[in-house]
Design a binder for these strands. Structure first.
Lengths: 340, 340
DNA sequence: ATGAAAGCGCTAACAA
DNA sequence: TTGTTAGCGCTTTCAT
C-alpha cells in the first residue's frame, strides 16, 4: 500500500559504487578543499546521481555539532513588521542552503526562552533574535550555548552579539518634523512602550522635534502592541473628550493601522482633520485606507545583513541602516490627495 | 572573553553520576514504558538536574530517524491568512514539544519543492502543507520519503494524505446569498484563480447563488494573489468603464483588502455605494476601513487538527470544519453603520 | 591522492 | 530490573 523506499542510500553505498572510500566521497560531497583526482571526482558524482544520494543531515550534525538551519525568534507573526523581516531572512538563509526555524513568542518571555532553548537543543547553526524584550532566562541560555546569535531591530540590555538596526530616534524626529512642516502645531503621539528599546527611542525622537518647535503635544498610550489595542486607545482618548489633534505621529505601522480604524469609525477624516505618519514601512502601508505615510526600513538589506553576520562570519560590529521617508495620503502628500 | 562551556554533559555522564547504565538513563529521559526501579529513577533524575543535562537531538535523530520538529510550507507569509494557520500550528506543535520549521514558497513551485526536500532531509517528524498548488516534484519528494504529510486548506490532485479544510463552495454560496438578501441584484465577483482548489470552489459557490437568483454577475479577475493585484484589478475595471456593482463578493480577505483600497481611492463608498463581503476571517478584517464582512474559518481548531493528525496519529480521514458568517460594516451590517 | 578506522551521543536488542 | 554492546551515517585524523 505504502511504497516506502527500502533505505536511503548512504555515503558507503556511494563509495562502493564509485569504487572508492567514504572519505573521498565525503570530500566530494562537501566540496572541502581537499585534493581529489578529477577522474575519481567524476565517478563519485556519477554514483551520487545514480543512487539519488542525499546526505543524512542528522549524522552530519552529530559530527560537526551544527545543523543546516538557523533559528528565528520574533515577538509576533501576526504583526506584518516582523513578517517582513522573517521573509527576507528566510530567503537569505535559503540562498546559502539553510532553512529557517521560525518561532513566535507572542511577547511572552517564557515562551521566548523556551523557543530559544529548543533552537539550541536542535543545534541550530545560529539564531536571529528580533525585537525581544529583556529576560534573564535568555541570557542564561545564550551564554551557556555555542550557538551564535545576531540581534535585529533591538538588542536587550545585558545580551551580547552584533545588532542590525536603524537610527530610530533620528528618523522619528524627521517624521515629526515633516508634520510640523505642514504647519500643524497641535500634535499627538500614539505609542505603546516608553523603554530603552526602539519604540522608546522613537518617542525621544518625537520629543526632540516638538521641543525644538516649542510645542506641547498630547501623549496617547496603548495597552498592547497590536492594532486593536491602538484602536481602543484612540477611541478612549477621543470619546473621553480629548481634542482631535491636527497631526498624529505613531511609533509603529501596526499601531497606526489601529488609529486609522478608530478615526474612520469616529468619522474623523484623514488627512483632512488629522494628518497621520508612522514608522516601519510595512507593505500594507501601500494599500491601507488611506495609504499611510511612514518611515520605511530597508527590510531586505537588513535581513540579508543579519544572515550574513551569522553565517558568513563577516565582522561582528553593529550595523545601522538608512531609512526612507515615504509620503502618502495619510499626511496629505499622497497621489490621491487631489481627488478629495 | 567567551565562556564557552567545556562540553555538554552526555547520557554517559549522567549514567556515571547516577551509578547506572546509559540504558536506564535513556529509559528515564524518554519516559518509555520500560520498567525502572523508583529509587534508580530518582538517582537518575538528580544526576540530570545536577549536570543540567539536555539530550542531544541530533544523536537521537540519527537513531530514530526523526527530529522533534515539524515542517510547515505555506505559499506566502505576507498573507495574513496563512499566518493565521502558521501561528496556530506553531502553538499546537509546541504544546507537544515540537518546534515548527516554516517555509514560504512565494507561490513558486520550485521553491516549494526545494523547501519540502530540505524538510525531508532534516528528517522533520512530519510536514503540513498549506494551500500548495500542483507539482510533479512535490509528489516525487513526498512519495520517496517516510515523512508523513497533512494538507491544510487544499490537497492538490494526485497527492495523498489527510486534508483539513472547510466547505468552500457552500460558504461562498451563503456569503453571496447574504448580499442577495440585502436586495442587491447587480453583483460582481473579484477573484484570482479558477481552478479545482478552494478559490475555484468558492467561485462555484458564488455561481450557485447567483444562478439560483437568476442574476448575471460581473467577473473581475486579478493577476496575482495579493491585495495590490486586487487593487489594480478593481481600478482597471472601474476606470475602464465597468459599472459600479451594488454588491461585491471577494474570494479571499487578502483580495478584499485590495478592493477596499481601490474603492477608497476612487471615492466609492463602502457600503453606501457597494456592499462588500469576502472569505477567510483573518484578524485584520476587524480593523480594516471599513471593517470587513467575511466568512470566518476556525483557524485554531483547524491548526490543532492538522497537528494532531500528524503527531497523535489519530485517524487519517479528512476533516471538514464549520465556519461563521461574520457581518460588519463593509456590507452595511456593522456596528458603525448608524454613525454614517 | 586515497583509505582505514575512530568516534559523535543515543537507542534498543539481547543477555544477565 | 539492569547492563553490555552494536550500530545509526558521517567527518576527520593519521597512515600510506
Amino acid at each position: 500500500m505504502d511504497p516506502r523506499p527500502a533505505r536511503r542510500p548512504t555515503l558507503a553505498d556511494v563509495a562502493r559504487i564509485a569504487g572508492t572510500s567514504t572519505t573521498v566521497v565525503s570530500y566530494v560531497v562537501n566540496g572541502t578543499n581537499r585534493p581529489v583526482a578529477p577522474a575519481t571526482r567524476e565517478r563519485v558524482r556519477a554514483a551520487i546521481a545514480q543512487l539519488d544520494y542525499r546526505p543524512n543531515r542528522a549524522a552530519r550534525a552529530l559530527r560537526v555539532r551544527s545543523q543546516r538551519f538557523i533559528g528565528l525568534v520574533v515577538p509576533a507573526t501576526a504583526d506584518p513588521f516582523y513578517v517582513a523581516f522573517a521573509d527576507e531572512i528566510q530567503a537569505s538563509a535559503m540562498r546559502r542552503g539553510y532553512l529557517t526555524l521560525t518561532g513566535s513568542s507572542g511577547f511572552n518571555p517564557d515562551q521566548e526562552a523556551a523557543l530559544l532553548e529548543g533552537l539550541v537543543d536542535e543545534e541550530a547553526a545560529g539564531v536571529i533574535l528580533v525585537g525581544l524584550g529583556e529576560s534573564r532566562d535568555l541570557r542564561a541560555v545564550l551564554e551557556s550555548s555555542p550557538v551564535p546569535a545576531v540581534f535585529l531591530h533591538h538588542r536587550p540590555a545585558g545580551l551580547s552579539g552584533p545588532l542590525v538596526t536603524i537610527a530610530d530616534r533620528e528618523w522619528a524626529r524627521r517624521a515629526t518634523e515633516h508634520l510640523l512642516g505642514h504647519g500643524h502645531t497641535e500634535l499627538a503621539l500614539l505609542t505603546h512602550a516608553d523603554d530603552d528599546g526602539p519604540v522608546g527611542m522613537r518617542m525621544r525622537g518625537f520629543r526632540d522635534a516638538v521641543e525644538a518647535a516649542g510645542i506641547e503635544p498630547s501623549l496617547w498610550r496603548t495597552d498592547g502592541y497590536d492594532r486593536q489595542a491602538a484602536s481602543r486607545a484612540v477611541m478612549t482618548a477621543l470619546e473621553g473628550g480629548a481634542a482631535v489633534p491636527r497631526g498624529l505621529v505613531v511609533t509603529t505601522d501596526e499601531l497606526a493601522f489601529g488609529a486609522l480604524h478608530a478615526l474612520a469609525a469616529l468619522r474623523i477624516d484623514v488627512p483632512g482633520d488629522v494628518a497621520v505618519i508612522s514608522m516601519d514601512g510595512v507593505r500594507e502601508t501601500r494599500t491601507s485606507v488611506p495609504e499611510l505615510s511612514t518611515v520605511a526600513e530597508p527590510f531586505a538589506a537588513m535581513g540579508e545583513a543579519a544572515v550574513s553576520l551569522l553565517l558568513d562570519g563577516d565582522g561582528d560590529g553593529d550595523r545601522v541602516f538608512d531609512c526612507e521617508l515615504v509620503l502618502r495620503d495619510s499626511c496629505g502628500c499622497g497621489r490621491y490627495a487631489d481627488l478629495a
